[in-house]
Design a protein around this nucleic acid. Structure first.
Lengths: 354, 354
DNA sequence: CTGAAAGCGCTAACAC
DNA sequence: GTGTTAGCGCTTTCAG
C-alpha cells in the first residue's frame, strides 16, 4: 500500500524545492529549461496526481456563484430545482463556495432582464441559469462573456450555447420518448396530440424541441397512418382551455396526449377524468404532487421525470468543480429520460431521499 | 459573505486553546465541567460546522476497503460493478482510502468462502460485498462483526442485514415492475412466466424475491384471470433449456416473459427470435451489450436497469463516508427501478458517461 | 486539565 | 530562477 507521491517527493527527486515544482505544475513560468524538463519527466514517470483536497484548502480562494432561476413559489418544478441548489450549497461550502439564488418571474421576460442586470453588477465568479427566455438569455450570456464570467445552463439548452456547458435532458429525444409511450402496443392507427400548456404567455422555444421529437417519431414509424397535432393552451383562460380540450377529446380515434409542461398535466388530467378517459393515453412530465395523484389514479399513464432537483444540483457542481478544481466540464451533461409508472414510482420517491 | 466559524474562532471566544475546543468537539474528555459548558454553548450559538475537508487532510489516517464481488470475467454485469469501484477509488484516493478488489466465482460457494477467509486475514477497515450466497454471506458477516469490521451490502440484501447498510434496488418491487411492464395494455387475460436462468447452479434466494413481487402483482390485479408460472433453467444444459423454453412458448395465451438474470435475457431472446415473437412480450434486466442488441431489434420490449456500476460506486462511497467523515449511512440506500425502452436507451448510455 | 506546536499536501508571497 | 516560509482548518502529541 504505497502512499501517493507528493510535491515534496518530486522536489527531492529532482533536487529542487517544492516552490519550483509547483511552478512547473501550474506552468507559471520563471523556471529554467533544465529544471522544467527534469521535473516534467519525474512528474510523468511517477504519475503524479495532485491532492485536490489539499489544493483547495490551501489556496484560500472563495467563490461566489449566482443561480438565476424562476421563482419557486410559482411552480413546484422550480421549487425542486431550488432544493437541489441548497443541497449543492451544503456540499461545496467546505470549499468556500458561496451561492446566492436570484429569482425571476417565469412569465415575465422583463423580470429576467432585471434580475440578470443586477446579478452582473455583483460580479460573481460563476452563474447557473435556466435559459427560459431565449433572446433575453442570449443577451445575458453575451454580457457574461464580456465580463468573463463562466456560466452553465440547465433545464433547457440553447443551440448557441457558448458557456461552460449544459446540464439536462435532450428535449428532442424527450419528445420521442413521449411519443413512444403513447404509441406502444396501439394496434390501430389514430390521433396523437402534443399539448403546450402555460400561464399567461408562451415562452416555449424549448417546448418546440419536444414537439419536433414527437412529430418525428410518428413520421418515422413505418407505414403509420396516424394523425399528429399540436395545441397551445393558456391556463390563464381556463374556460377556453377546457372547451378546446374537450373538443379534442371528442375527436374520434384520439389515442394519446403528451403534455409538455409539468404544470399542465393536472389541468388535462382533471378534464380527462370528468370527460372519461376512454382509453386515451396520457403522458406528462415530472413528479409534482398533483401529477403523482393522477398517476396513481391511472389518469396519467406515464410520467417522464426531468429531475430538476438533480439537474440544479449537478449544474452547481459543474460550476464549482470548474472554479475550485479547474475541472473543465465535459459538455453537455445529459440526463436520462426516466420513465415513471405506478409501479416504479415509489422507488423513485425513495431514491430521491438521497 | 461572512466566513464560516473555525475552531480557532471558538477558542478565542471561549478564552481557551484550540486543543480544548477540539477535545469537547470530539467528546474526548479531559476537560473541566466549566470549559465544556462554555464551549458547548458557543458551539451551539455559532452553529459551528467542522470543515470535513480539513479534518480528513489533517487526521492522516489511511483506510483499506476490500470489495468482494464475483469475477468480472464471468459476467458483464459484474464487470460494470467493478468499473464503479474503480471510479470510487479515484474519487476517494484523496482521502487516503485504498481499495482492494477480491473476486470469487459466481457459481461456486467455496470460492466465496475462501475469498472471504483470506480477506478477513488482511484486517481491512471496511468491506463491500454482494451477498450472492445467502448462508455463506451470513457466516462471513458474523465474522466481520466479531472483528468489528464495518460492511456494506449491494446488489441484493439479506433480511438479517446487520451491517452498515444496503445499496441497491428493492427486488420485490422490481418483480412488480417487471410484471406491470408485461401486463400494460393487455386486453385479454393470458399466461405470464418468470424465468430464472443461471449457470451451473442456482444461487437464487434473491431472485425469488423478484418472483414474489411478480406473482403478487398478478394476484392483486383486480379480477384478473391470468395464469402465472415460474421456471428455473440451467444455461449449462443448453439443449434442455431450449426445449423447455420452446414448450413454454407454444403454450396458448402466453403473453409475457420476465427473465430475472441479466445474462439470461440473450438466451431467451435468441430462442424467441427463432421461434417467432408472436406478440409475446419480453422484459429483462440490465444494459448488457447483448441485451441492448435485442432491445433495439424489438425482441426485448423493456429492460429494467439495475445499474451495478452506480450501485458499487455508491457502496464504496457509503463505506468511505463512514470511515473518513464518520457519516452513518442512512439505510437502506434504494435505487430507482429504471425502465429502459428503445427510445430512452441512448439517453441512459450517454448519461452513463459521467 | 490545558496550551503549544508540528504537520496533513499544497499555494503563494517574499526573499535572495 | 529558485528556495523558504507562512498559512488553509483541523488533529494529535507532548509538555506542563
Amino acid at each position: 500500500m504505497k502512499r501517493r507521491v507528493r510535491i515534496k517527493d518530486i522536489a527531492r527527486m529532482a533536487n529542487v524545492s517544492v516552490g519550483t515544482v509547483d511552478r512547473v505544475i501550474h506552468r507559471r513560468g520563471e523556471v529554467s529549461e533544465e529544471s522544467f524538463r527534469k521535473i516534467m519527466a519525474i512528474l510523468e514517470k511517477t504519475g503524479y496526481e495532485p491532492n485536490l483536497i489539499a489544493r483547495s484548502l490551501s489556496s484560500g480562494k472563495t467563490f461566489n456563484i449566482v443561480v438565476l432561476i424562476p421563482n419557486p413559489a410559482q411552480d413546484e418544478y422550480w421549487k425542486m430545482a431550488e432544493e437541489g441548489v441548497h443541497l449543492a450549497e451544503e456540499e461545496w461550502a467546505h470549499h468556500r463556495v458561496h451561492i446566492k439564488i436570484s429569482h425571476f418571474n417565469l412569465y415575465n421576460k422583463g423580470s429576467f432582464k432585471r434580475a440578470a442586470q443586477s446579478l452582473l453588477k455583483s460580479n460573481p465568479d460563476g452563474v447557473l441559469t435556466a435559459p427560459i427566455f431565449h433572446q433575453e438569455a442570449l443577451d445575458f450570456f453575451a454580457a457574461c462573456q464580456k465580463k468573463k464570467i463562466p456560466f452553465v445552463l440547465f433545464n433547457n439548452n440553447v443551440s448557441e450555447n457558448v458557456g461552460l456547458g449544459y446540464v439536462g435532458q435532450d428535449l428532442y429525444q424527450s419528445g420521442q420518448v413521449g411519443a413512444e409511450l403513447l404509441q406502444i402496443d396501439q394496434k390501430e392507427p389514430g390521433t396523437y396530440a402534443i399539448l403546450h400548456i402555460y400561464d399567461d404567455i408562451s415562452n416555449s422555444t424549448h417546448l418546440k424541441e419536444k414537439e419536433r421529437g414527437f412529430k418525428d417519431y410518428f413520421l418515422h414509424l413505418n407505414g403509420s397512418k396516424n394523425k399528429v397535432t399540436s395545441l397551445d393552451l393558456n391556463m390563464g383562460h381556463r374556460q377556453t382551455l377546457e372547451k378546446d380540450l374537450i373538443k379534442l377529446l371528442r375527436e374520434k380515434g384520439l389515442k394519446g396526449l403528451l403534455v409538455t409542461t409539468s404544470k399542465g398535466a393536472s389541468v388535462v388530467s382533471s378534464v380527462l377524468e370528468k370527460h372519461g378517459k376512454n382509453g386515451i393515453r396520457l403522458v406528462a412530465y415530472d413528479l409534482l404532487q398533483e401529477n403523482l395523484h393522477y398517476l396513481k389514479k391511472g389518469i396519467i399513464d406515464f410520467l417522464i421525470n426531468q429531475n430538476s432537483r438533480r439537474q440544479a444540483f449537478t449544474g452547481v457542481a459543474q460550476l464549482a468543480n470548474y472554479l475550485v478544481f479547474k475541472r473543465e466540464p465535459r459538455v453537455p451533461y445529459l440526463f436520462p429520460l426516466e420513465i415513471i409508472t405506478r409501479q416504479n414510482l415509489s422507488s423513485y420517491l425513495k431514491s430521491m431521499q438521497h
